[in-house]
Each structure stands twice: as C-alpha cells, then as structure tokens.
Amino acid sequence: MIEIKNLSKNYDDKKALVDLNLTVESGKIFGLLGHNGAGKSTTIKSLVSIHKPNSGSIKINGMELSQHRSEIKKMITYVPDTPDVFLQLTASEYWNLVAKAYDLNDEDILPLRKKLVELFHMENRQNEVMSNFSHGIRQKAVLIASLLSDPAIWVLDEPFQGLDPQAVFDLKQLMKVQANKGKTVLFSTHDLQMAQTLCDDLAILKSGELIYEGSMTNLRKQYNNESLEKIYLQLTDSDDSKLFNEIEGEVNA
C-alpha cells in the first residue's frame, strides 16, 4: 500500500503539488490522470525518490520513505515516460545490470526473463545496442527490466506511448496479472479510454491539486454513467464545446 499525505513540491516559484493526499491499495490498478503540468510525473518521481518533496510524507507498507529509502527502493520498479536509458548497452546487458541492482542471480530471473522476451517479441533484438532501437522497442526493453524482480509496487509513467497495438494489449494484461497477485500497480496516462477500461481506482489532478480520488465505479455512478472523457472534462473545466461552436461559426461565415 502507498500512503501519500500532504505532499507538496515546488520548482522555484511554481507549485507542482499542493498538499496531495492519496492512498493506493495493493491488488489494484491505480491511474493518475491530468493535463500536462497537473503534477502526475512529480507525484511519481517523488514516489520513486527522483524528486525530494518540500513537505509531506510517503509511506510504503507503513514505512516512511525518507527513513527507509534503500529498503523501499528494492520493492519498487519504475518505467519512466521516456525509455532513453543506458543506450550504450545491449538489451541483454541492460537486463543483467538491473538484475544486479536488485541482487538477483541469473538463475533467479532466467525463466521469467525468457517468457517476457518472448511475450514482447525481443528474441532477435536482445543482443542489439539499445541506441539502435525505436522508441517502442526501447519501451519494451524497459518494461522487461521493470518486471524481472517481480516488484511489490510497479510504477509506470505514460507507459503506452510508442507501443504497437499488440504490445499495448500485452502490457495491459501484465498489469492485471500483477494486480491479481496482490501487487500495487500505479500508472499515469492521458488516455482516458485506457483509464476507464483498466483502472480500479484513480486520481485526477489539476494544477498540482487533487480534484478526485476513488473508484472508477463510484465516479461514473456520480455522473450517471457518463464516459470518463466527459466526466474528466467537467471536473477539470476543460469542455471547449462553446469555443468549437464559435470556430465553426467563423469558418462558415
């Protein structure tokens, strides 16, 4: 379980997060939604210790992150929004490096690694240097690395970008598998249809502030089972229908 309490983060004079409170339960898929600059990536990077918050606390299974950082890092794996990591290595070398970081032996990871490589059709690419890969192939390599330790908490920042349709389907299934095993899965996305079909719970952020947290089911009940897209636009005051009508009037004038 992840518990975030009164988390705030500033970048100079800009408030990226303002007293954020979230609870992410184990065994569920939790989505972070919001416009660019809403605070999604800042929340994730605070959780995985890339950013240090100005105030507030993060607890993982009851342990305070600031006090148990090394121990908690072993429980979490992170898929960044850009997979441009260790590009001088082959995919196989990169996976070996990640395994060592989690104190895993080759024997520990080989069966799972083999299955993941096959799932993402990387059999013939694993000995290539990652700088030669397209964005989508790099993303697959990073996804494989992130699952080698069978993490208790799997954190993904915009993970579907650049993936082909088959890989998108496979990733969604893997997220469900992890949640069904009692793991915590947290991801950010701009894809509202994806969130509607995949998330058990979600949080919607606007300008660093939380404007909704709860289950997808309850959210849609509150809005007469409208689509998440329509609900999101209402919550974030982003419905541009009037503006589109005005533009259409100008075009037809």
Rank of each mutant, 00 (worst) to 15 (best):
F30M: 07
D13H: 10
Q67N: 15
N180M: 04
G37P: 01
D84K: 12
S241Y: 15
K5W: 12
F86R: 09
L33Y: 04
G62Y: 02
E64D: 14
V98H: 08
N218M: 12
L186K: 01
Q166N: 09
N21V: 07
S46R: 05
A195I: 11
S207V: 08
I76N: 03
L17Y: 01
A101S: 13
D84N: 13
H68Y: 15
A38Q: 02
A179H: 07
D157E: 06
L171P: 12
S207N: 15
K15T: 02
N252W: 02
I144W: 01
L156F: 04
L148I: 05
E158C: 02
L143P: 06
M1S: 14
H190P: 00
L192P: 00
L7R: 02
I60T: 09
L186C: 00
A145K: 00
D170V: 02
P53M: 01
M63Y: 14
E158R: 01
F169D: 09
L112W: 10
M75S: 07
L205T: 05
K73Q: 09
V168D: 10
I204R: 01
D13Y: 06
E250Y: 14
F86P: 14
E71P: 07
E250K: 07
G31E: 01
G208W: 10
K114R: 11
V142W: 05
E71M: 11
S241K: 14
S26N: 12
H35N: 14
A179W: 08
E71R: 10
D81F: 07
T82H: 13
L32C: 05
E246W: 08
M216W: 00
G214C: 08
I58A: 08
L97I: 09
K15A: 01
S188M: 03
A145N: 06
L104P: 04
L89W: 10
D239M: 07
D200I: 11
L22Q: 04
K52L: 08
N225H: 13
K9S: 03
K206E: 13
V18P: 07
T23E: 12
R125Y: 15
L233N: 04
F120L: 15
S41D: 00
L186E: 02
K45F: 06
L156V: 02
M1D: 14
T197K: 10
I153M: 13
A91T: 12
S207M: 13
Q193G: 12
S238H: 09
P151Y: 03
V168T: 14
N6Y: 05
A99E: 04
K114M: 12
S92H: 10
K181W: 01
A152Q: 14
Q196G: 09
P165C: 03
E226F: 06
C199N: 02
P151M: 06
E213V: 11
G208K: 08
M194Q: 11
L174Y: 07
A38C: 05
V98Y: 07
F160D: 14
E128A: 06
D239G: 07
E118V: 00
N245L: 09
L104D: 05
S49H: 11
K242D: 15
V251N: 09
A253N: 12
L110W: 08
Y11V: 02
Q126F: 10
D170L: 11
G37M: 00
